[in-house]
Nucleic acid binder design. Structure first.
Lengths: 253, 253
DNA sequence: TACAATTGTGTCATTAATACACTATGATTT
DNA sequence: AAATCATAGTGTATTAATGACACAATTGTA
């Protein structure tokens, strides 16, 4: 959608339905083949990338807006969302100002306003997610943390802040639960933690501690068909998990 | 400031200078006589209370707006501020809608809009702070966490969320440094932690751990003139403190 | 000068974290 | 069939951190 007519319609529609000056941007984390991935969108005909985002209806709760936006991008309905920061540097809007500035006069152009953006991070099951581009994008795809594109606006900062928050909250939020599939092996879970923390952990100590939390249930049958010794399958005991999270996994005083 | 004329002027001025739909509310923590206190404002002629807050100039960074607002309330210039949440439930604005609704038609009334409010908590030195009411308030004063008034809007929720955040961040933010005066005794610092965490700590273990962080400098001279054994005075070694904070006081993996 | 209140300090037991090595299994190669 | 490779499962010894606990020192007051 890049025609002048389409843009004009979008702007008129936006002015009528959305709260001005406020946007939502989401960092959607998924975990695949031992790598943390993030959902990114590519601008049509440009090597420019951005995070899934959108605007808030005039009478819509913030988190509901984030959910609505992400449902469009992922087809997922109930998504674990965590608000982590508002980005509001007036400079961040300057790049916005320039968007489509040749196609529409500033007065009509929705994008020629200052925007504060509310940052959410989302945790999704990689295998359940079907990435869909939005109307400004050419594509929507997963990119590993080790292979991130150049982002528009302050989206690199937003992503970095989300990741920092994720690391800090690793012990307080059900991060494993939301990122892993229903059943998984201990080495797979360990790889998730290693990917988030970006460091190697000791297999034996990891397993001891994880099991010590009492939030995992071991399946009777190990996973078969792999090329090596069959690993046990685990799943989260959601009840115990949520109880443990209320306290936080780690003490502190 | 409650005259129709004054309100009209305020609204006209606000519409011209502030971003619409966005406000800032601050939970200002101070520590005095062993109790955590919060700065609260009282509505003129009503037993209604609210947190210090305000609006953002159209081209002003968020944190600068929070600083400006708090400078007016506290006379303090460089304040430790931490953004912790945006509150945007459409219901929260309903009470706003009613404000001054008899004095001005909705179209002119700045307050008859939906507002998302960005929550900041601030940590200040109680003794350096001079509370000043804003134009809608009759008074601005400290209230202990054990003696909080009934708040307007969702300000009780904002305060609770700030406090929860403060507890979680106790090991990652220079909370002691900002709340204590330059020099303090170990029992005083312990009382701060006990007030924040709302539980008793063991004197000996607290001291051992605190000193173990290597962020305190013990003054040569103990505090004299007290009614009991003269306690040592400590101050924060800012350099070590900030280095330690980068890591966080506690490990986690 | 005895007492009350408070501060300073040390030790022991328990728990948690770290470092580290061998055995077991299943598929592949020889 | 036996050896090999890759991966998974398990245990123990050392060290560090935490939690529980008791007594001595100082200062003003009764």
């Amino acid at each position: 959608m890049l025609t002048k007519k389409g843009l004009k319609e979008f702007c008129a529609d936006a002015r009528e339905n959305y709260l001005p000056h406020i946007s939502i941007d989401c960092v959607v984390f998924g975990f695949h083949e031992g790598i943390m991935k993030v959902l990114v969108l590519k601008v049509q005909n440009e090597d420019e990338w951005y995070l899934p985002g959108g605007f808030m209806l005039k009478n819509e709760p913030i988190e509901m807006a984030a959910n609505r936006i992400l449902k469009e991008r992922t087809t997922l309905d109930k998504i674990f969302l965590q608000q982590f920061n508002v980005f509001g540097d007036p400079e961040r809007s300057k790049e916005h100002f320039d968007m489509y500035k040749d196609m529409l006069p500033a007065k009509e152009n929705w994008f020629s306003n200052r925007f504060l953006t509310i940052g959410y991070y989302a945790l999704v099951d990689f295998f359940e997610t079907n990435p869909n581009p939005d109307q400004f994008a050419e594509s929507c795809e997963w990119r590993g943390l080790d292979d991130l594109p150049d982002f528009k606006l302050d989206h690199a900062l937003i992503l970095k802040t989300a990741l920092d928050t994720l690391r800090l909250q690793l012990n307080y939020q059900p991060i494993g639960y939301n990122l892993m599939p229903k059943e998984f092996t201990m080495p797979e879970l360990q790889k998730l933690y290693e990917a988030i923390l970006d460091k190697k952990l000791d297999r034996r100590n990891f397993q001891r501690r994880m099991l010590g939390f009492g939030i995992l249930t071991r399946s009777d049958e190990p996973r078969k068909g792999g090329a090596h010794k069959a690993p046990y399958l685990y799943s989260f005991d959601l009840e115990n998990y949520e109880a443990a999270l209320k306290e936080g996994f780690k003490g502190g005083w």
